[in-house]
Design a binder for these strands. Structure first.
Lengths: 342, 342
DNA sequence: CTTCATTGTGTTAACGATAACAACTTGCGT
DNA sequence: ACGCAAGTTGTTATCGTTAACACAATGAAG
């Protein structure tokens, strides 16, 4: 007899309908051959007892949870958001639920920490959205029985990775500015431990060097922290450099700050200085966005992350894959040809 | 023998260490009396076999999943984001994991749809973050065996609810503008099916009426859709109303648009027109935010949502509770005393 | 009136972990 | 030598579900 505090089980339903548990199971799954009369009896009993199948028992029998674990560090960044949404959609399409773990990113956690924390959880595979560099990225080696896909632009020997190509972003932005006739390009970075920022910087640096240009030394003020105010400081500092006519900024929030800083020091954008940002996150907050930027295809990244994880679940002992997906320049109103020499 | 594609079970570990399964379980839990020698043997076997306890089996035995389901419609809104983070933190503190379900908000889903979709999932309780009005809000009645907390400013007879007090937000903003000497206050709404926008509008409307002021008819352009561009349209329309010296806008993105629209039509903010927004979401995208706004305490809302759900899980057949948490005016640079009569 | 497919239903035995108990060591006191 | 507690380990049964099989009942074909 089902007490008031417990769930009704299959057996309770079976008793009530005067059938066996297996028959209830068969009705639950809609499948197999059950006579119409029995089916109705069972369905009625299910309703009366508010029966819901016990997911744990099903998972135990099935041997899988149909669930992916997602670990991420912060939701404030637009990229992570869109990515989470894309992962959710793709996972749903493949019949997987999502268990989300938001890791406080102040702590000095390692990949292994995150992994061992999720290991005992009810998940069949994991996606780790990696923001900062991790000391154990090289050694990290997930067990083949619980595969992991890491979303990052770095590659690791023992786990699959996928990301929007951040280095390409740096290359595209820098190349575009050089094409416009600028003699060099200044860079405003994100936090020093941000992988995305590091890769964007590398793209910027290598492109300049490939064009035979010595990358300008980065001022202290140009080491930002993603915040618009840190961008403002950078803008103020860059305004004092007469040569500086082109800036690539590691995100749009800081780019907004850079532009404000430049303007407050008498520089016009784009007439005096061109600015390219990254992530196209302003359109939800400002009317008529003017900022030229790089847009990333997070939907695609999410799709890949889920697909790679599910593949690895179905086929353990699969070799790690590494995917980098292209991003795109959105040329708006903050980029212009270099001003004439003075 | 553990085959290459399957997880090692407790029994595999037991065999390897030459002990019984129960002993492995005891070592797993760190508890009970196990001799040091045996413990080491077991730990070694665990490592060698990469053992991880089967969450499904544990949940089945325990009778609970230690997991909360969270259903939400969109992650783009700042509120939902902060809320999800707060829920995640509170849940972790109480030993619960989170299964997140992002419901495509284009569809005409009902609360019952969401509930029945999550019912068979491996969750002990649910939190539904409700954005839009739902046709079945009145009738919706979750089973006591799977309690639900709905995050919404509306109340329902059969389920617990909690939210930041949206009506209060409308009252605070409107009251502040009236205190500054404005004769009336105009409102720019969000989408018509948004519960938050409806409540904010109600707070605005009742406050005006309480001061003996007939709320101005809402222009078609003042029915926005949260986007800054829709706010811009509203700003353009309001600029043509000479009486209009104070505007309360249902979110900050639209407020940004309203200000741009007003300025483009020769109105100064705040000298000619005062503007108050809502949600304080701009500080991550703009340096030196000037917009006066209402800030909501999502951390607190999340804490309540988790606490209420967990309480209901521990004590089924608990009466539904309804909580509304206070919000706060942040008075910055877009509010000023009403201009002198012309 | 058998024989044999067909259809519907019940029975058994797992899945992996663990509470509750039983059983076996020790070491100590008498 | 005996009894008894304390410490350690093994056994059994169970959580809810379902695959695989066993078994009835029915009807059609020979």
């Amino acid at each position: 007899m089902a007490s008031s505090h417990a769930f009704a089980s299959q057996i309770d339903v079976a008793r009530r309908a005067g059938v066996s548990a297996e028959t209830v199971s068969r009705v639950s799954h809609g499948s197999s051959a059950v006579s119409e009369r029995t089916k109705q009896k069972v369905l009625q009993a299910m309703n009366e007892l508010e029966y819901r199948p016990n997911g744990a028992a099903q998972a135990l029998k099935r041997g899988s949870f149909q669930t992916l674990g997602v670990a991420l560090f912060d939701l404030r960044s637009t990229g992570n958001l869109l990515l989470l949404r894309a992962i959710s959609e793709s996972a749903a399409l493949k019949g997987y639920s999502l268990t989300v773990q938001i890791v406080p990113h102040s702590k000095k956690v390692t990949l292994t920490d995150i992994y061992t924390h999720m290991r005992p959880q009810a998940v069949d595979g994991m996606i780790i959205i990696l923001e900062q560099t991790m000391p154990d990225l090289e050694e990290f080696s997930p067990s083949p029985v619980l595969p992991v896909t890491i979303v990052t632009s770095l590659t690791t020997p023992h786990a699959s990775t996928v990301d929007s190509d951040q280095e390409m972003a740096g290359r595209i932005a820098t190349t575009r500015l050089l094409e416009l006739g600028h003699h060099s390009v200044w860079f405003v970075s994100g936090p020093s431990d941000s992988i995305a920022s590091q890769c964007r910087e590398k793209g910027w640096r290598t492109t300049l060097i490939a064009h035979g240009i010595q990358p300008p030394t980065m001022l202290p003020a140009c080491h930002g922290d993603w915040s618009p105010n840190s961008g403002y400081e950078a803008g103020c500092a860059l305004a004092r450099i007469p040569d500086c006519t082109a800036v690539y900024t590691a995100n749009d929030a800081m780019a907004n700050g850079v532009i404000a800083g430049l303007k407050d020091h008498g520089k016009r954008v784009p007439e005096d200085v061109s600015v390219i940002g990254e992530d196209d996150s302003l359109k939800d907050f400002e009317p008529h966005v003017r900022l030229s930027t790089i847009s990333e295809d997070w939907t695609q990244v999410g799709k890949y992350a889920v697909a790679m994880t599910v593949d690895a679940i179905k086929n353990h002992r699969m070799a790690p894959r590494h995917e980098l997906l292209p991003c795109q320049l959105i040329d708006r109103a903050t980029t212009a040809p270099a001003p004439a020499e003075s």
